[in-house]
C-alpha cells in the first residue's frame, strides 16, 4: 500500500519551465555580477587607490610643513658643500 503511494509521487506532473526563464536568469546573473563588481570596487579598488594616494598626500604635507624634499638616497652629507 505504502509502496504504491511512493510510486504515485512520480505521477504528479511537473509544469513546463516558464517561457521567460532564460531571460530572468540572464537578468539575475547580470544583477549579481553588478553587485560583485560594486563590492570589489568598494572593498578592493577604493582601499588600494586610497593607500597609494595616501603616500603621496603624506609626502606633500611633509614637504609643505618641513620645506625640505625627502632624500631617499641618504647621501646628503656626502654631497660637496
Amino acid at each position: 500500500m505504502i509502496h504504491d503511494l511512493f510510486e504515485r509521487l512520480a505521477d504528479n506532473d511537473v509544469p513546463p519551465v516558464p517561457v521567460d526563464f532564460d531571460q530572468h536568469v540572464h537578468d539575475r546573473v547580470n544583477h549579481s555580477l553588478l553587485g560583485v563588481h560594486m563590492m570589489e570596487f568598494v572593498f578592493q579598488v577604493v582601499p588600494y587607490a586610497f593607500l597609494h594616494l595616501l603616500g603621496g598626500l603624506i609626502g606633500l604635507v611633509g614637504v609643505t610643513l618641513s620645506g625640505e624634499f625627502p632624500n631617499d638616497r641618504g647621501d646628503r652629507q656626502e654631497a660637496p658643500p
Binding site: 519551465v17 530572468h24 536568469v25 539575475r28 549579481s32 555580477l33 560583485v36
Partner: peptide, 14 residues
C-alpha cells in the same frame, strides 16, 4: 520553484 531555479543558476555562475 521559479525563484529557486534562477538562484541555482546564479550560484552556478558565481
Amino acid at each position: 520553484a521559479h525563484d529557486a531555479a534562477q538562484e541555482v543558476f546564479v550560484r552556478l555562475f558565481l
